[in-house]
Amino acid sequence: MLTSLLRIETLTGQPIKVKGTQLRVRSQVVQLRLPVISGGLIWNRPVAVLVRAVDGRDQLLPISDLTRTAVLALLVLSLAVTFLLMLFRRKIN
């Protein structure tokens, strides 16, 4: 039941060959289907690039989302400051 409602999978694209180097892009898809009405949510984001060099060496380059990391860091910071303020106020009282 839950697997039909929520599906998370990693997809790999077709190889792109440029001057002997092969690139394969990867993305992660989160699919959420609404149970009552037809429709849902699809969240697709880039994850990594698999590079195969001319000499056959494989290299996995992760794709990091700096904007999301920064926004999440700010969220954690605000929550931490709030928690510390509450703790500090409780100690004073």
Binding site: L34, S38, G39, G40, L41, I42, W43, N44, R45, P46
Partner: peptide
């Protein structure tokens, strides 16, 4: 590379 968020209901 871009992040895509798609929401739909019918």
């Amino acid at each position: 590379a871009a992040e895509v968020l798609s929401v739909a209901a019918f």
